[in-house]
Design a binder for these strands. Structure first.
Ligand SMILES: [Mn+2]
Ligand SMILES: [Mn+2]
Ligand SMILES: [Zn+2]
Ligand SMILES: [Zn+2]
Lengths: 144, 144
DNA sequence: TGAAAATTCGTAATGATTACGATATAATCA
DNA sequence: TGATTATATCGTAATCATTACGAATTTTCA
């Protein structure tokens, strides 16, 4: 993840009138550096080192704000919400992901299934779609 | 949902050595009749009428057993697990769903995105995939 | 009908997420 | 820079879906 996208994230924060706090900075840097899906717990485990009194309220509120303003994207896996740095901040256009269920690492899928059927859903109002492939990545395969 | 698929579900139960209890019968009938995604809470709300002392332990244990033996299929929406009668019991081949976020009703999508990219994931081991379209169905659009 | 195994009940524990009043901090401007 | 004010964070409790488990019940099969 490039430094440019961290800049873009910070710019977004300020544009929308959010305050630029040290916790928010750290969260953005964490996601930019990790470049994979993280749970709220992983975020708190990591930031607890720097901010021992960090509250879950702060973590969740910021995670959701970040999703709101498109700094993060969100998914849900076995009952837990997971977040990653938004690919669109990197200038990439709409795509989907292979997600490693062991480490959260992703690979881009350059194909959106929404481009196909269209006519099959007359009368319904489409709000969103989800396409994800789950498995084990190369690295995790080696380790196990 | 046909009566034939209820029969198939019961047959599956017995084949696998599960006991055929009145709660299991009622759950299967409920899903066959509803023909849409239901939460554990909806299941218990409905069955509570017949079995006032029905336990969540029973509901979840049976839901998971049913998924295991392919009587039900499962998805996850805004932090809640949801279950529906398995389309494959009806003899339909692999497909995906449009899901109405208001009522849980589904429409079949006759297209699997896995048929396309293939070569994009060298080295990874694919375990599963998820493709779902969310929105509001015709009926719920009328009502609102 | 009776014994063995599986199932259910009643209830408590867990774990992620959400909520909220009190306190602290960032941004703005005199 | 110092005061002001809106926003953010902390500390902690509440909520809610899900899971767990010992005791009691029911199904199955001989
Ligand atoms: Mn991507
Ligand atoms: Mn279907
Ligand atoms: Zn898409
Ligand atoms: Zn598919």
């Amino acid at each position: 993840m490039t430094g440019a996208s961290v800049e873009k994230a910070i710019q977004l924060l300020k544009e929308k009138g959010y305050k630029y706090t040290d916790k928010r900075q750290s969260m953005i840097e964490l996601f930019a550096q990790a470049d994979r899906y993280l749970t709220a717990k992983e975020v708190q485990k990591y930031l607890k080192q720097t901010y021992p009194s960090l509250s879950y309220d702060t973590i969740y509120r910021n995670l959701y704000s970040f999703v709101e303003m498109n700094i993060l994207e969100e998914t849900e896996l076995s009952g837990e919400k997971m977040f990653r740095f938004s690919c669109s901040l990197d200038g990439q256009h709409h795509h989907h992901h292979f997600i490693c269920t062991k480490c959260g690492m992703t690979k881009n899928i350059h194909m959106c299934p929404m481009d196909f059927f269209k006519e099959q859903l007359d009368g319904c109002e489409i709000q969103s779609h989800r396409f994800e492939i789950f498995g084990t990545c190369e690295n995790c395969l080696k380790v196990s």
